[in-house]
Structures are given as C-alpha cells and as structure tokens.
Design a protein around this nucleic acid. Structure first.
Lengths: 180, 180
DNA sequence: ACTACTAGTATCGAGTCGAAACTATTGCAA
DNA sequence: TTGCAATAGTTTCGACTCGATACTAGTAGT
C-alpha cells in the first residue's frame, strides 16, 4: 500500500468518525456541514449556490438540505432586494447554539503537540489547494487573507465588492476570496 | 475560528473532494470505501461485521452496500465452513481492476514534499488513534505491525489465530490487529 | 425586444444511514 | 441435554443525499 493510499484512507476515516460523532440537534453530516459553513461565511457567501460550490454538490441537493434546516428552525431566508433571484441564508439563534457547540475530534487534536498540529494544518491546506487547483474549485478562505482586502479609514474594505466591512466580516469565509 | 475547527474543516473538505473525484465503475463513495477495504483486508477480516466496524456504520447498511457491489459483479461471497453464520467477501477480477485503478488526490499529495507528506501521515494517524481510543474503535492496522505477529520457520505466523500466514497476508489489514 | 445566462426549485431513481425487528447458528451453563 | 443468551447476517422503514434533468423567474447583453 502506498503512502498516498494510506493518507487518503486516514482522511476518509477521520471524516467518517467526525461525521458519526455525537452532535446536538437532529442533523446528519451534510446538514451539519451546511450549518457550519453558514456560521462562518459572510453575507455575500450564504446562498444555495455558494453552499453547493463549497461542499462540491449540486444546487438541487443544497436546496433540499437547506429546506430541512429551515423546517427544523436552524436557518432563515433573507431575499436580496438588489437581485430578486438571490437568497442569503442566516442562522437563527437556535442554529447558532448548535453551530457553536462542542466540536468532535477536539480531544484527539489536543493530544497532538502544537507543532505537530500546525504542521498537520499546513499540509492539509496545501493538499486542498493542490486538489482545488486541479478542479478549478475555490478555496473559500477568510476575507482578511484575500488579495481584494484593504484598509480604508482604519476599517476593513473589499476592493472587489467596493464595500466597507466590519471587523467581524473580515474574519469570515468569502466566496470570492483569492489567497494572497 | 480555532485551529481545531480549521483542521476538521480541511479533513471534511478533502474527504468530500476525494469522494467526488472521478472513479471508474458505477460506484458511490461508500461503495468505493467498502471495495477499497476488502481489497486490503485479509481473509479473516472481510465479513459484513468487519466492514461495518471499519466504516463505523451498522451491519444493516453494510449488507445493503455489499448487495449492490455483489449485483454489479465487483465482489463474491465465500461462506465459512467452520461457522455457518460467517460470510467472507472477496473481490472478483473486475473488482480488483477498479480497486487498483488510479487514486484521486494522488497529484495533490505528490506536490507535497516527502517530509511534509510523512509528517502529514503521522499526524493523521495519531489523531485517528486518539479518536478511536475514545470510541473503543479498532485501528485496523496491517497484520505485520501487530503484537500477535511472529516468525515461525521463516514465515509469518499469527499467535492469536494460531495460523501460518503468507507474506501477502502479513501485509494486509486485520480486524484483530493491535499495534505494537 | 430578443436572447443568453444565472439563481433557485421540483422530481426521479439509486443509494446511505440508523433503528428496530427478524432468522439462523453457535456457545454456555444449569 | 435442553434451554437460553449471544452473535452473524438480513430485512424493512423513514429521512435524507446525490446527480441528473427539466423547470420557473429574474437579469444582462445586444
């Protein structure tokens, strides 16, 4: 068995364990991923299309997942005024409780030394970047690590969307992010 | 966002990418995982129960997956004579073709330096061990890295099952494996 | 105004998944 | 030896994922 195969297996098993680990709410792995993404994405990146891009599924599937999250009261719709086709989903207080609750795998990662943990994170990130580059996928990094991120009057500013941003927004995931 | 959350996200996204990447055959991610496991497990570790333990799902689900792999001609049943309840699944030649075909994510991992790749593998393995220890899960490591592995007359021997093993078997996954 | 494109939805079929009920076989113990 | 508990595997149910396809509605470009 090659090293590559082993790494792939490890990643898949860890993802499975993570998915199977107890989570609050009546949510399956995909729904939890959607909720987790919405919790960390900025207001310009919370539409069904963005979620599908992030998760690598189709818009049809995402619509279904959002429908069941909506029904369970974890998210709410916000239709855009500017473009009436666009919907941005936001977490309800109930959804925020769940998204902020304890993270599976946390103990397992804590048991790693902090050097090892940093090495793990950077190797995973490189791998993800390489893999995404092959597929034309986006990285979905944080706003503040983007080439379009500026400072304007001491506050964060997006040169692409030509909008001022709150400090909080600069720390969120953005669909348009292009790493520096 | 904490480092832990980021690592979890990276693992989940990579697993999703891996699942979505093109594979031969008409197989979904779970079926591919089952096939991949069967391809690498020894003859004592290829029953529905073992597959469920490995994947962390229930026996019911595994039965369904095996049924569809059987129907598609990728695996075949081998009922045990010793214990008539037990079934061991083996890959057909067609199944071996698929299991041996190109691995998604291979290029992404190749782009990593070999040091970084080794660090990645060992950090992932530690994390998996920690996580499994919490759940009482087994590691499913290779036979030759097990405390029950011996040499007898120059050939591998399992002190638990009290059986001689081929060199090939010593290199396979065993359900009973306990890391040295 | 026409057309191409984009955002989101609905529906289909195959399949996952956990849960629970079920059959067949094996093991243990009174 | 009979009798029961444990084990291996199957079946069925309901909720859901997922890709594919066809659909509606709003937006842009010519």
């Amino acid at each position: 068995m090659t090293t590559h195969t082993q790494i792939r297996e490890l990643i898949n098993r860890l993802a499975r364990l993570d998915a199977a680990s107890g989570w609050a709410g009546n949510l399956n792995p995909t729904q939890r991923s959607v909720l987790g993404y919405l919790a960390r994405a900025n207001q310009f990146s919370r539409s069904p299309s963005h979620v599908s891009d992030y998760l690598g599924t189709t818009r049809g599937t995402t619509t279904q997942s959002l429908k069941s999250l909506l029904q369970k009261g974890y998210v709410k719709e916000q239709r855009s005024e500017l473009d009436k086709r666009v919907i941005s989903y936001a977490l309800t207080p109930k959804g925020q409780d769940i998204a902020g609750s304890a993270v599976p795998m946390e103990d397992a990662l804590n048991a790693l030394g902090s050097n090892e943990r940093d090495a793990l994170q950077s190797a995973l990130l490189s791998t993800l970047r390489n893999a995404l580059a092959k597929n034309g996928g986006r990285e979905f990094g944080l706003c503040k690590t983007c080439i379009h991120h500026r400072e304007k009057g001491g506050a964060p500013y997006c040169a692409l969307l030509k909008t001022a941003l709150s400090a909080e927004e600069a720390d969120q995931i953005c669909h348009e992010q292009v790493p520096v």
